[in-house]
Amino acid sequence: MVNFTLNGLEVSVEKGTTLLEAADFYGIEIPTLCHDKGLSPYGACRLCLVEIGTPGRSRLVSSCTYQAREGLNVRTHSERVIKARKLLIEMYVALCPSSKVIQCLASKYHVTKVRFSPKHEDCILCGLCVRMCDEQMQAKAISFVNRGGRRLVSTPFAKKSEDCRLCGACIYICPACQTRCQGPQEENILCNACLNLEPPCLEKFEDVMCYMDPCVACELNTDKKPNK
């Protein structure tokens, strides 16, 4: 067993458990767009970032690929994590505003403005379909093509593939082309129909602490900022 600190709690998990799995086990939700329990972790969407290490010498890692280590200090909702995560969601919305999954993420993580011009893409290149086709369906009909800003998912030479059995697993697992979000308007690509109030913790703490009961932040005197 590996013992480490997860958001201030002493926890222990089996060796080889990723931080994402550990957080899931302890009921802490970490958003992700490229992870599926049946597929190998890829670390591409960067939404599952967590902060590891002691403050001042910490860094962000993707929790889906990082395995728990003895004595590690992990924070899943620190200010640094939230700042990065919100900006990433903002970019996701601008990239693919019609995805309900992404719009819901935006509301959940209180992204209320998008400062980028919308692109209306259908693909966020999370790679779920590529891994699904390879690892679960053993077909290897599609793969990533090109690199950098020109990357896309395609069959070889963009032709009908002989390896494809038309199983539809790629469509099943796609987070971007699932149920379309009806909310966003032309002038405002953000839906925000299911927006929740952002917990006020971050104003006082470096971490969001609302999963704690009772909520420490709400009970504290507003003048005191113990962690900041």
């Binding site: 960067r46 990433l88 999370c126 800003g149």
Partner: peptide
């Protein structure tokens, strides 16, 4: 141009 393109960030 040279990024591999796998990380969204």
């Amino acid at each position: 141009d040279e990024s591999c393109g796998s990380c969204f960030s």
